[in-house]
Amino acid sequence: TKKDTKLYCICKTPYDESKFYIGCDRCQNWYHGRCVGILQSEAELIDEYVCPQCQST
């Protein structure tokens, strides 16, 4: 049987260590910077990140 692979981001793909991720400070989920429109250089300046799903609630 195929091992359950945890899926990340709004694009629902397995973790890829070569890509940049940003963690939501509300739901603790991880998102590709590219998918949520945040560059790694911008993320370093953000104190708290809230993902699109949490922003809409």
Rank of each mutant, 00 (worst) to 15 (best):
I38L: 13
D47A: 13
H32I: 00
K6A: 15
T13H: 03
C9Q: 01
F20G: 06
D16A: 04
I38P: 04
I46Y: 05
Y49P: 03
Y31A: 02
H32W: 00
Y31T: 02
N29Y: 04
K6E: 12
L45S: 11
Y49I: 03
S41H: 08
L7P: 11
R34H: 14
E44H: 13
P14Y: 09
D25N: 13
D16R: 03
D25Q: 15
Y8L: 12
K3A: 09
C51P: 00
P14V: 06
C35I: 02
I38M: 11
C9Y: 00
G33P: 15
K12T: 10
P14F: 09
D4G: 08
C27A: 00
D16K: 04
C35P: 02
G33C: 15
R34S: 14
C9D: 01
E42C: 09
T57D: 09
C9T: 01
H32R: 01
P14M: 10
Y8W: 08
C11E: 03
C54Q: 02
A43M: 09
L45D: 12
Q28A: 09
I10W: 04
P52L: 09
S18C: 05
E44T: 08
G33A: 13
T13I: 04
C35F: 00
F20K: 07
N29E: 05
W30I: 12
V36S: 02
E42R: 04
C11H: 00
E42K: 11
I22R: 04
P52M: 09
C24T: 00
C9H: 01
T57F: 04
I22N: 01
T57L: 03
Y31D: 00
Q40L: 05
P14L: 07
K19C: 06
C35L: 01
L39H: 04
D16V: 05
C54R: 01
L45M: 07
L7S: 12
T13E: 07
K3D: 10
L39I: 14
K19D: 14
V36R: 02
N29S: 12
V50Q: 07
T57I: 10
S18A: 07
E17W: 04
C11Y: 00
I10P: 04
P52W: 05
R26H: 15
K19S: 07
D4W: 04
Q40N: 05
E42D: 13
Q53H: 13
T5C: 13
I46W: 08
I22K: 03
N29I: 04
V50L: 14
Y8M: 14
G33W: 04
V36I: 10
Q40S: 12
P52D: 15
T13A: 05
N29T: 07
C9K: 02
R26N: 15
Y15Q: 02
T5V: 05
I46S: 10
C27W: 01
R34K: 15
T5E: 15
Y49C: 02
F20N: 12
C11G: 02
D4T: 09
L7A: 13
G37V: 02
Q55S: 14
K19L: 11
G37E: 06
D47P: 10
Y15D: 04
S41W: 07
T1S: 10
C11V: 00
Y8H: 13
A43R: 11
L39W: 05
C51T: 00
S18Q: 03
V50S: 08
K3Y: 06
Y8C: 12
Q55N: 10
C24G: 01
Y8N: 14
S18D: 12
